[in-house]
Each structure stands twice: as C-alpha cells, then as structure tokens.
Design a protein around this nucleic acid. Structure first.
Lengths: 193, 193
DNA sequence: GACTTTTCGACCGTTTTATTCGACGATTTT
DNA sequence: AAAATCGTCGAATAAAACGGTCGAAAAGTC
C-alpha cells in the first residue's frame, strides 16, 4: 500500500461496519482482517490492537455525526425546523450507534473511558447548539423560554434519557413516529401561544 | 413451568431473535439464558444442546415462512399479483434469514445437513406453488408459457440465484426497488402482449 | 541484488464457551 | 411425612476461540 494513512481509513470503515453490527466483543480480529482480504497479522501492522481500531472507528463516526448534525440544522430556516432536524438526526444516529453501546456497556468500562471523554466533549457541543437554536427561536418570537441555558440543559437531559428506551426497547412502533410524538409534546410546551 | 412444551416455545422465540441477529456461532448459551432470565444450566433442562435449539428455531421459522407464503398468494386474485406477492414475501424473508446463513456457511456444514433437508422439502413445495400460479395465469391468458414445469424451475433457479447477491451485497439500494425491477423484467417476458 | 516495506502462517497464553454435575428448594406422589 | 420428581442454579471442566507476537517469506524500491 502506498499510503499507510489511507489504508488505516479503509480499515476503520470496514471494521466500523462489523463493529456496528456485532459490537466490540463479538467482532474478532480475524473477521476484520478477512473483510479486508488480509491475514490477521497484517492488520496489526497498521493498528496496535483491537481497541485502537475501535477507538479510531468511534472517533471517525463521531465526526461524521457532527457533520450531519450541523448540516441538518443549516438545511432549514425556522427554529422549529432546526430543532426538529437536530433531534431527528441525533436520535437516528443513535440507532446505528446502539450496538456500540451494547458492546461498551458490557463490563469493559475500565478500558473505554476514552468514550466518556468524547461523550463529554459532544455534550458540551450539543448544549451550545441547542442554546443557539433556542436563542434564535426566542429572537424570532417562536419559542418562549425564560433561560436558554437551563432549557437547553433540560432538553439535552430529555434527549439522553430517551436514548435508552427508544432503542433498547421493542422496535415494533417505528422510531420516527415516536420521535414525532415526543417533539410535538416538546413544542407545545415551548412555542408561543 | 407447568407446561414443558410451552416453555420450549418461549426459548425458541427468544433464542430465534438472538440467532437472527448474531448468527449461530456468535450467539452464546449465556445470552440465550439471560434473555430468558435464567441460569444457563436451566436451559439445558429443556434442550440437549445449542444445536438443538438452533434446529428448533429454523424449523419454527420455516413454518412461519410457509404460512406467510400461502396467505400472501391467497390475498390477491390476479396471477401477476400472486406471483409478485410470492416473490416479495419469499425474498423479504431471506433478509431476516440471511444471518442464519451467515452462521451456517461458516465451516460447520457437516453439522447442519438438516438444513439441507428442510431446504429440499421447501424447494419441492415452492416448485408446486410456482407451477400453480403459472398454471392459473395461463388459464386466465395472462401468462404465456410453453411448459409450466420448466418455467417454474427456471423461476425458482432465478430466485435462488438472487438470494446471495441481493442480501450479501451492498444494501445501499433498497431491496424492494431492486425486486420490483427484477419482477418487471420477469413479467415482460411472460405476460401476453 | 541489497535494503525496506508489507504480508502471512504458525504459534502462545489467556479467556470464553458449551456442556456436565451435583446440590438445593419446591412440588408432587406415595 | 417420607420419598420421588421437578426445575433451577453455581461451580467445574475440557475444548475451542481469541487477541496478539514473531520470524520469515513476498513484494516493492533503488
């Protein structure tokens, strides 16, 4: 391979698919290698360990999510639309990520504190985005909130609380309908009457 | 548990979900047991082995498929509709089953020849159904085929050939569209002009 | 053809896994 | 109420799978 960095990318993308389906523990190095049509030892030429690959995958996916999120809120003008898009993309992406969680929350918490680091960083970013959306909403007199900071935190807490029941519960009712229902509730408490 | 047979059913349904997601090999007895809120050894009170559970699951799912198939062709009158429904349900169910295959085609072929038995039986049933649909179509002058038997075999061969590329390849294009396209091709060669 | 980069198969120590076993309380039979 | 049976479980075991290593073979470069 001419470019090592490029090949690492290939590994990340390929391994990411497997991780997202089977989780960290159930994904074997052999599978990752086979998916790349390689011997297992060759993969170790590019990555130190399985965990390093996993870390790279999560980082990679996190960046994709960030991009999706920002384009999602840019794609509409109205604050309600922004909020709706944001929540949708955010929660939708958790559908894909739920299997990572599956893997992480097993017993290996000790090894995956780097995930908490990412999480913290993204929590802060999320809060900023939510505040911004709220702020614009208030400016345009579409939202009515006393304190954007606290409200943003409240929404974030709600969103986090939703992650688990939304994807670890039965998937009989489809997610979009449920999210829409939740968003309706949210807006009826926020939009000016 | 009052009824042993009833509990076996519970195991089959519960384990079936796990198998269909992770495949045979990646599914552990511990997981099956945990999903039933039991100790792993208790499961062995109802089943001899992991393979026996797997066998029971496949048998169970095969029967469900059979039912879905027959109701699907009964639900419409026109031969074209029957054929369309049949192909759809059949191929759709392979989406679910693809993970079983994933497991089976690993290396354990020696142990899973019972699947071939089921397969053969279903192949014969399928052929009969296809012939019947074709026969009705010819009767109503909607289809034009020289020999229903050979045509049924041809269609079956096509369907089988489609299984692999349809579900083991990239899932970017959704399956329904691709199936529809294939069906169009099929009908333009069959329907009377 | 020497020297570097990349791939790989064989191997190792550890962990996981399917399965067994015996013990246990609960329930039923005698 | 003693004995047998049922259903559950934790611990034990033996085999397999797994992550990771290493030295040597290929492939690539000059």
């Amino acid at each position: 391979m001419i470019n090592k960095e490029e090949f690492r990318r290939k590994v990340i993308i390929s391994a990411g698919k497997i991780f997202s389906h089977y989780g960290f523990k159930k994904t074997t190095m052999d599978e990752i290698a086979k998916a790349l049509k390689m011997g297992k030892s060759s993969v170790y030429y590019y990555f130190e360990s399985k965990e390093e690959i996993f870390e790279a995958v999560v980082l990679y996916e996190a960046n994709i999510l960030r991009n999706e999120l920002t384009t999602a809120i840019k794609s509409v003008e109205s604050p309600v639309g922004k909020m709706k898009n944001y929540v949708f993309v955010r929660m939708k992406s958790f559908e894909k990520l739920s299997n990572y969680y599956n893997a992480i929350f097993d017993k290996n918490l000790d090894h995956f504190d780097f995930i908490e680091k990412i999480r913290e960083k993204y929590d802060r970013e999320e809060l900023a985005i939510l505040r911004l959306i709220l702020y614009h909403g208030v400016r345009q007199k579409v939202f009515h909130v006393a304190n954007t900071e606290y409200t943003a935190m409240a929404i974030q807490t709600t969103l986090k609380g939703l992650e688990v029941p939304l994807f670890w519960k039965k998937k009989e009712v489809n997610i979009e309908n449920r999210l829409n229902a939740i968003l309706d509730v949210l807006f009826y408490g926020i939009v000016v009457k």
